[in-house]
Design a protein around this nucleic acid. Structure first.
Lengths: 173, 173
DNA sequence: CTCGTGTGAGACGAATTTGTCTCAAGGTGT
DNA sequence: ACACCTTGAGACAAATTCGTCTCACACGAG
């Protein structure tokens, strides 16, 4: 149910609760019984996305093996969460920047740590800061999700699109 | 005036026209005299962004010299437009995908052509498609603009952040 | 069968937002 | 001084959206 709501809100961030309910397949009354108001729905969505994302980070084992491989695993593990991320990425702009839940801090810290480790071991170049690489990672994941949703890219290319760009940019293999 | 509206809408995409007017520094009546309704304002904003972006593309001379240098010039020229792009990038989700003005087709085509050229000359690797590289370029420009606006990155690092990531990813120079 | 539960449909008022109007104030050029 | 234009402030109705309530219907468990 949240899945359908996420898909729909990804396309129409400002949709009415009436539209959301119809898109999900329930009546507005039922939607309001489960989530009282748009805020609760967004919160539930964020909670679900955070849970999936945490699980993805656990599966990726970011602190094991070469950082390059860990980054590959990270992108691959994030693929199912990408639509949620894209949604929250667009909604995050219209929220007070200081009221964002502290649960994001964990996630951010783990990804930042990966880029720090790669820089320390010399696998990653020293020019780009881990903070920017983390933001760029989010942007690329969300951008790839949008490209796929818009039909400009194939869903099965997600991992390669993001990993190749993160690892080598446009340069030759 | 549009500049102020863009800055404010970048932070609060769902702001009331009252809030927009106050942020711009005029009364709601005056704002409504210039742009009848939110739609016209967004359209004007998009028009302005398109004009700036076209000018940036002209300045970048994407079809001259090595594609790598052209990409560098492109990013540098896009820096002033980045906040506009970030705004439209978030607003574009809530619009019918087929009613988007054809003016974007020009811009997209020129950027896609750059990546095509780089791939043809062998400067860019053959794995990533020009279409995805274009989307990724937009994502990174918008992401960098958000990072800067959020205070996580310095404004003067914009060009290097985006170009380094596009050209080499995380790998060493 | 009967009860309880969950759902859909609809109606209602409240709050918000928007478009429009009027009027007074301020500035400009003649 | 005078006409002219723009703006700010406020009021007003219309439209939209949201929260809430009621009622009828379906469905499974006992």
């Amino acid at each position: 149910m949240l899945r359908a709501a996420a898909d729909f809100l990804g396309r129409r961030p400002n949709a009415t609760q009436d539209e959301i309910a119809r898109a999900v397949g329930v009546s507005r009354a039922t939607l309001h019984r489960h989530f009282a108001g748009r805020g609760e729905l967004l919160a539930a969505l964020e909670h679900l996305a955070l849970a999936h994302l945490r699980e993805a980070l656990d599966d990726a084992r970011l602190d094991e093996g070469p950082a390059v491989d860990a980054l590959r695993r990270l992108v691959a593990a994030c693929e199912p969460v990408a639509p949620y991320l894209a949604l929250l990425y667009s909604q995050s702009q219209e929220r007070d920047p200081d009221e964002e839940p502290a649960e994001w801090a964990d996630i951010d810290a783990r990804i930042v740590a990966l880029f720090h480790r790669g820089r320390r071991t010399g696998e990653f170049g020293p020019d780009l800061t881990p903070a920017w690489l983390t933001d760029a990672f989010y942007s690329l994941v969300a951008g790839a999700a949008w490209s796929i949703q818009a039909g400009r890219a194939a869903s099965r290319d997600f991992t390669q699109m993001v990993t190749d760009l993160m690892l080598r940019g446009v340069s030759r293999p």
